[in-house]
Every structure is written in structure tokens, then in C-alpha cells.
Write a protein that binds this DNA or RNA. Sequence first.
DNA 1: CATCGTGATAAGTTTTGCTTATGTTAAACG
DNA 2: CGTTTAACATAAGCAAAACTTATCACGATG
Lengths: 308, 308
Amino acid sequence: MLNVTLKQLRYAEALARHQHFGRAAAACSVTQPALSAQIKDLETMLGSVLFERGARTLRLTAFGEAFVERVGPILRSVDELEDLARAAQDRLIGRLRIGIIPTIAPYLLPVVARNLTDTFEGLDLHVRESLTSKLLEELAEGRLDTAILALPIGEPGLQEVALFDEEFLLVRPLSDANKPVPPQEALRHMKLLLLEEGHCFRDQALSFCETQAPRPREMLDGSSLSTLVQMVGAGMGVTLIPQMAASVETRSAAVALARFQAPQPQRRVGMVWRRTNPLAEQLQQVAQVVRDTTAAWIAEQAGEVEPV
Amino acid sequence: MLNVTLKQLRYAEALARHQHFGRAAAACSVTQPALSAQIKDLETMLGSVLFERGARTLRLTAFGEAFVERVGPILRSVDELEDLARAAQDRLIGRLRIGIIPTIAPYLLPVVARNLTDTFEGLDLHVRESLTSKLLEELAEGRLDTAILALPIGEPGLQEVALFDEEFLLVRPLSDANKPVPPQEALRHMKLLLLEEGHCFRDQALSFCETQAPRPREMLDGSSLSTLVQMVGAGMGVTLIPQMAASVETRSAAVALARFQAPQPQRRVGMVWRRTNPLAEQLQQVAQVVRDTTAAWIAEQAGEVEPV
DNA sequence: CATCGTGATAAGTTTTGCTTATGTTAAACG
DNA sequence: CGTTTAACATAAGCAAAACTTATCACGATG
């Protein structure tokens, strides 16, 4: 089998340009015999002579001309390849596929997406909104680079980093606004509206209410926090929402927000990725951008709810 | 400077295809450490990881995917390069630029061109018709591969091979058809029509007539043998034409052909090329095709002129 | 917990490729 | 017409690259 090397192609191109072994060799930073040998090897492999050596002239054969004509584009493509690498090595660049759970995505995305694409110029951000289980599956299959969800996950193959903690707030009908905040244990007797099965936020809420066995009879499942809040506004019950959703979701509903006394329910939001992902360092940078973006924002939203 | 090799690109492509170091290595006919090392070197040079190694899974990084996507076309181009060489090595193929002098071209070309393109399938024949001096110049400059002209040339850098010898015939007005053929020395007193300056055939004719100094007064210069013959038919004088031109040029003119007694004037037609031309062997084959084609043809034309 | 699959690493050997020095050939020059 | 010069080929020696075999390390799996 033939075994042409890029070196030979570079030498051949130089020789074609300079029409002179010595100068071509100098241009390639090697000595003339080195270049001569490579050209000779190349010609031997090809079975045809590329260069017609005269005593004082060097000229391409017809075949050599056709050959060199094709060599140029090849070498340029290889150079592009090296450029591609150089462009990618320092900062995160190109496609980043990030999954976010539904109780985070709509609130986090608007403030974070802009900062990410500003920080990482040339970043091609792909976001997928799915339940935790599906995100973890896609992460394992390599169809996602990272995911933002509620910690802990506890998968051994996944690296977890915390982004921020946030409280859960009680959402009541506006008519209840001035009532005292019920203690934790009182919740189990109230009509608690929850997200449908599969949302981790549902489990976290149930956990806080110390309601071991879900009682489907009494709870209407909503497919989004937005729906739940509207249901509360209609007097169908109460619900919990994470703090980051508060200002958005309660703006257009007749509901009142209340903060629980300690122990306050809360969740830890974090980012995960495969431990084997070589973009780990860049993903840490992404995590930091999210942290920086959300830190002030979370605090600001907390101030909107009087501590009751 | 980066120094990516084709070998690395081939290994990377194989690894991307097989998703497995061992199998990719086998496909490349090397051992796994060899392939591993090359991939590692490649990644180090690029400054980015191409493959994400899991314990049981191997997956392309986003960068690796973009990289391999570009590698395919490059490797295919290189393979095409090797195909090009294989196609060219056995027989003459591709462009052949051949120069022919005007007193040969129109007669030789029709019978030879067909035979050449039949013999050398895929031959791309380019013919240039010029005077000897211009042909030699173009040959030296590499703008022609070979030339067919009258020998000898005597250039040290040129290889000469004979193709055939041919007589010069006397062209007289038809009214002179039955007169005896004038002896060589009588020609200098006749009104001899010749080609314009620069044609070697002019010099050869003059040489035969032993007319050292051309006498422009008495000679009208024609730019082609065809014109000369027509002038003879109009009674303006006599001329000489090479045998191969005889049947074509005298068919439509009121002239008579006559063969000289010994010593008959003649010329040797041959082929020349640069000694450094690597196509020498193939050019010898071309010469042989021309010889074979013309041998019978010259003899046949000779029979048309009675030996007087 | 032991085993297996898989890639990384180590040591040793072959191959490649480079450099310096010298040979060869043909054109150019006096 | 012999000498010089230009230019590529060849030779010898050496350094670096690349391959092979053998072994290690690690995580998944039963």
C-alpha cells in the first residue's frame, strides 16, 4: 500500500514553487539532501516522476503538474484543521448541549443564556428541557454535555457542582394573605397542589410536608408551576414554588407569597456532567458564570417577599 | 508549529469509526499502543482532547466530531492523489504537447493523430504548428513535450530520433509534364518558387539547388506549399515539395510531378525532445507509432509518381 | 470481592529522517 | 578545450520517531 506523507506533499509543493531543490529545502528548514530524498521516495511510491531535473532547470512533468495542483487544497485543508484546534483550545467554543429541568429552565435561562454567550464568544448553546431522569439518561448517552438540576444525584459517573440554594415559598390565595404562615406539619392537612409525577420538585415538596404516601385523591397534578399558581389563584388549594419562580409566576395571579419559618424548605440546584468529559474545566467556568449571574438575582427576589 | 501527520489523521478516523482503540488499531494494522500514542500526540499537538475515554465507552468530543468531519475529505483527497499516480504510471496518459513544422503538419497529422489517440487511450493531444526555431524554443522552455521536424537539429540537450526519409519532388506546370526532368544544376536557372524565410524546407530546397545566395528578385515567397503549387499551376515558375505533400497539393492544380534522378533531394523527418524529459520512454513509443503509420503511406504515395 | 475489558505506560528495537561530506554531470567561462 | 561552477544525487553516521511486546491501572460487572 502507498504511504504518502504530508511532509512529502509539503516538500513537493515547495519544490514546485521554488523550482530549485536548495531553495525549496531552505524554505522547509531542512537541507537539500533531506528534501531530495523525500521527493525521491515520493516519486518512487507514486511510480512516476514528478519533477524533470535538468542541469540548470527544474520543471514539473505533466503528471507533476496535475499532482501538485491537487496537493495545494489538501495542505490548506490540513492547515485549517490546525486552525480549528487553535481556536478551540483556550475557551469553550462550539456546541454546548445543556439540559435543564422544567422547574428551573424558564426562570434561569433568560438571565443566564445572555451571560453565557457573552462570556464565551462563539458558543453555540443548545438547551433541552426535560425531567431529571431523562436528562441523566441523555447525559450518559452523550447526547448532552451537562445538565442543571436539583442535587444530589449520586451517580458515581457524574461530577456534581452546586450552583445555588433556594427556598420554597408558600403560595396561597390572596384572601389568605394576612393569615399566619402555617407551620410545616399543618401542610399535610391543606389541599396541596403539586406537579405531576416525575418532577423532582414534586418529591421535594412532598418530602417537606412529611407526607410519605402521596394521596392522589386530594391533589390535583399540574404540568407546570404556572398552572399550579393559577389554580391557587382560583381558590383550589395551596402550593409551593421555588424562589426563583416567585416573581414571574405570582405577577399575574391573585395569590399571596409567604416564607416559611425555619426549618425552611429548600433545594440545592447544581450542574452535573460525565466525569470523563474533557470539557470539565470549561464546564466549571460555565458553572461559575451561572453562580455569578444568579447570586445577586436570587437575593433580590428574596427581598420581594416579606419574611412574615 | 504544528506538525500533524496523515498517519495520525488515518488513525483518528479509524478510531472515530470503530469507537474502540483495539479494533481501530487492528484496522490500521498496528498494535493498540501504537495507535494510542499517535492519538495522544495528536491531541497534545492540537491542545484539545478529541476522544472522551470512558471505562467502557469511547465517544467523540464536540471538537473531535468537528475535527473528524474535516479529516474524511482530506484523506479521500490523498487517496485520489495515489489513484492519479497509479493511472499514470504504465502508459502515456494525459496531456502531450507536440509541435510540428508547417511542411509536415497538414499531411502527417490526419493519418497519425487517429493512430496515436487509439494507441494511447486517454491521451490528450495538443498540436502546435510553428517554424523549427520557435518549436525548439518552446521545447526548451518546457511549453512543448516533443516536436516533429526535419533533422538534424544538433542541439546537445535534445534527443533526436528519425521517423522517415522522404524525397523532394519537382512541381512543374502541366504543360511541362512530358519534358525531361532537369538535372540538379539546371534548377538554379529556373524560376524557383520558395516558402518565405524561416521554413527549413526553403533552406533544404536552396541547398539542393546549390544556390548559395538566395536571389529574392527571382523568387516569390509563398507562405505555404499549397500556395506555391497554385502559383506553379498559374505558370509562375516551378517548385519542390516533399513527397508526403504531393498527392494532397497537386490534386487541385494544373501541375505535373516529377522525381529527380539521383542524387535525389530529400529530407529526414524526426522527433526530438529534451533529454531530461522523463516521458522519454513513452515518447519513443509515440515515435514508433508514427513510423508504423507513415511507412506504408509514404511508399504508397511514392508509387503515384512515375520515376520518369 | 474477584474478574474482565479496555486503555495507558514502560522498555526495547526497528525504521525513518536528518545532517555533513562527497560524488556526478552538464552548462558556462576563459 | 580544459577548468570552473551550479545543482542535484549519493553515502555515512546519528538522532528521533514509531512500532512491538509486556505490564499496569481502573472501572464496570457478576
